[in-house]
């Protein structure tokens, strides 16, 4: 049984929080550079140029690229032969968030409950999903998820007879309704199958996948590309000001479902698609 300590996790999470908010991933930068070449609209080109310039400033000056430094969401792939010592995994992650957001001068955006809405002051708690996997390592994926885009996400319990065309129509409608509010160009995570909560989880997990990486199932990969093309024909463009680049990518995740159901969840991410991971 391999051991990972509480302190190792705290330090790793602190770094993830800071780096995710300061260094825009190369996958996103490359996707925006390529999108800029394809744009015909001067406003769209200008918006993409400013976003790329913004990413450069953030990285060079070690400041967050966006003031909404997000709610911290973690997907932990915990090896079943990995033993966490010195404290709980959840406490360690929240301590890492506290230190990362404090030391990184990141915004505290979390209220302690949805009714009384008092800011916790340190961006805790995060949301932690744990998947038990084979092996003895602990991989922590982190996203700093902004709420401009989170607020525009939707879930629908569709019927099997709606079919894949129904799913496509729901995804397109969601992106269109999100419009400029979700800060396009967006990344679209689609969770297809499972049940009510599983589809939402799959949609979130889809956002951890790097831009350009396709689902390994050929039919799901084709669905991703078809959706991407249709979304980019909506005309919304960067920031909803018109253009060809409404989405940078679409990621679809599948799971088994019930004979009576076709759950579909659409989780939208803004262009500040902040995802980082570390393996301990």
């Amino acid at each position: 049984m391999r051991e990972v300590t509480y302190e190792q996790i705290v330090d790793a999470v602190k770094q993830l929080c800071i780096e995710a908010n300061v260094d825009l991933g190369f996958d996103v930068v490359r996707a925006m550079q390529e999108a800029r070449k394809r744009e015909k609209s001067a406003v769209a080109e200008e918006v993409l140029s400013q976003l790329l310039q913004n990413a450069e400033i953030a990285a060079a000056e070690r400041v967050p690229m966006c003031q909404d430094t997000g709610m911290s969401v973690f997907l932990v792939e915990l090896g079943q032969d990995c033993h966490i010592v010195g404290g709980s995994l959840y406490d360690a992650i929240n301590e890492g968030v506290r230190r990362g957001y404090g030391e990184g001068y990141l915004r505290a955006s979390i209220v302690h409950d949805p009714i009384q809405r008092k800011n916790t002051g340190d961006n805790t708690p995060g949301i932690v999903h744990v998947e038990l996997v084979a092996g003895d390592t602990c991989t922590i994926h982190m996203t700093a998820k902004g709420f401009g885009s989170e607020n525009m996400s939707r879930l629908k319990m569709m019927k099997p007879s709606d079919g894949i065309e129904g799913v496509k129509a729901f995804v397109l409608e969601t992106v269109r309704l999100a419009g400029p509010n979700a800060c396009p160009p967006v990344v679209v995570g689609v969770g297809l199958g499972g049940n009510f909560e599983m589809s939402a989880y799959l949609a979130k997990r889809a956002l951890f996948r790097p831009i350009g990486e396709r689902n390994q199932r050929e039919d799901a990969a084709q669905l991703e590309l078809a959706l991407l093309e249709q979304i980019n024909q909506l005309g919304l463009g960067p920031q909803g000001m018109g253009g060809r680049t409404t989405a940078l990518d679409v990621h679809v995740e599948l799971y088994a479902t019930h004979i009576a159901g076709l759950p579909v969840a659409v989780n939208i991410n803004c262009h500040a698609s902040r995802h980082k991971h570390v393996t301990l």
Binding site: N54, A58, M65, A108
Partner: peptide, 25 residues
């Protein structure tokens, strides 16, 4: 431009809290 927070901050010369101090950000 949404998400261009670092770039926009460069154009802000001064910031002074003038009301509702208890609301933080």
């Amino acid at each position: 431009i949404g998400g261009a927070g670092a770039l926009i901050a460069k154009t802000i010369r001064s910031a002074e809290m003038v009301a509702y101090h208890d609301l933080g950000t």
